[in-house]
């Protein structure tokens, strides 16, 4: 009799479980079979009327049915719940995310930032100076004789007889040497101007980073070491470089540094004028006349100075073929950085 009831109940459970489709169905099933007043609980009640020696066997049978039902109910429940989650997540995740508009940094600033970062990590501070300079700071204090041919190199914008748009960032050297105590170890970034017609390769304003180190016992060997460290960090440790004697009125001895053209790896191309070399900076030991003009005794202190252009290097680094693109500031250009 009880055997029959157990079999019948198992069959009923077997029929009902698969038809469960919703959380409501689940609850209904639980109440019908598994609740305290449910049909499995009712079976335990009928156990009372079973002969004593049969009780353990029936007890085990009902326990087994209960366990089996609970397990299958749990499985079904999870199935239903995960189906509900799936329904909730049924969005097209290939749609774009809620993007924010990005802003970019100008490539010239990027180049400048990298230069600043290398020099600051080498112990250089950063100083700025005015873009309109007087003749004294731009030329005279820097040892440019009044009619020296070197002034041929500098075609200059004049604001007044003795005021110019600075032709280099070097006059800031004079200002810091006069204003600040030694030792002095600074770079001087900024905008400079030359009275030159605008073309793909040249502009009437551009950007430079000058550097200066004045202290006791600063040598040409220190200068070379600093420049090599900079170049290897900035252009890559594998570059080849060369130093050439050169001439600037404000340094002596003077040099120019070339690196292997990174576009043709030194084989020679249009950019390096088929020489395989790119001139990247000028430098030298601060001329004794300049030290003297700035109130220092060249017998007791010495210094080195260097200067490099930012725009031309940026052209090469980013593969831009016309310098005017930098200052057109087209959003389609800016967005590439």
């Amino acid at each position: 009799m009880l055997d029959h009831s157990i079999t019948e109940l198992r069959d009923a459970i077997g029929r009902d479980l698969p038809s469960i489709a919703s959380p409501d169905d689940l609850e209904r099933f639980r109440i019908t079979y598994l609740s305290r007043s449910g049909r499995i609980a009712a079976l335990y009640d009928t156990l009372k009327s079973v002969p004593k020696e049969e009780k353990p066997r029936y007890g085990q049978l009902i326990n087994a049915l209960k366990q089996e039902t609970e397990q299958r109910f749990e499985e079904r429940k999870q199935e239903i719940e995960s189906r509900a989650t799936a329904a909730r997540d049924a969005v097209d995740i290939t749609m774009p995310g809620r993007m924010r508009d990005k802003g970019t940094r100008h490539p010239i600033t990027r180049t400048m930032d990298e230069m600043k970062s290398i020099f600051t990590s080498m112990g250089f501070g950063i100083v700025y100076g005015p873009e309109v300079e007087d003749d004294y700071h731009n030329f005279e204090a820097l040892n440019f004789a009044p009619h020296h041919p070197a002034r041929d190199m500098q075609d200059t914008f004049f604001v007044k007889d003795d005021l110019v748009l600075r032709t280099h960032t070097t006059p800031v050297q004079v200002r810091v040497m006069k204003d600040r105590p030694l030792p002095l170890r600074v770079i001087m970034p900024g905008r400079v101007y030359r009275n030159e017609a605008v073309s793909a390769r040249s502009n009437y304003f551009f950007h430079q980073v000058d550097g200066l180190y004045v202290d006791k016992h600063v040598t040409f060997a220190d200068l070379k070491g600093t420049l090599v460290t900079f170049a290897k960090n900035f252009y890559g440790s594998s570059i080849q470089y060369r130093f050439r004697p050169s001439y600037f009125p404000f340094t002596e001895p003077s040099l120019e540094m070339d690196i292997t053209c990174f576009l043709c790896a030194g084989k020679g191309c249009r950019i390096c004028k088929h020489s395989g070399w790119l001139e990247v900076l000028g430098a030298g030991m601060v001329h004794p006349n300049v030290l003297r003009n700035c109130g220092h005794d060249p017998e007791s202190v010495s210094g080195y100075a260097f200067g490099m252009g930012v725009d031309r290097i940026s052209l090469l680094r980013y593969g831009v073929d016309d310098i005017r693109i930098f200052f057109e500031n087209d959003i389609r250009f800016l967005n590439q950085f």
Partner: peptide, 23 residues
């Protein structure tokens, strides 16, 4: 310097540690 050859002058990496306060 020029006649001795710039290449024959050492590239001295300064041994002295220079501290510059962050700007």
């Amino acid at each position: 310097a020029r006649l001795h050859g710039y290449d024959n002058i050492e590239n001295k990496s300064s041994g002295e540690v220079v501290f510059t306060a962050p700007d």
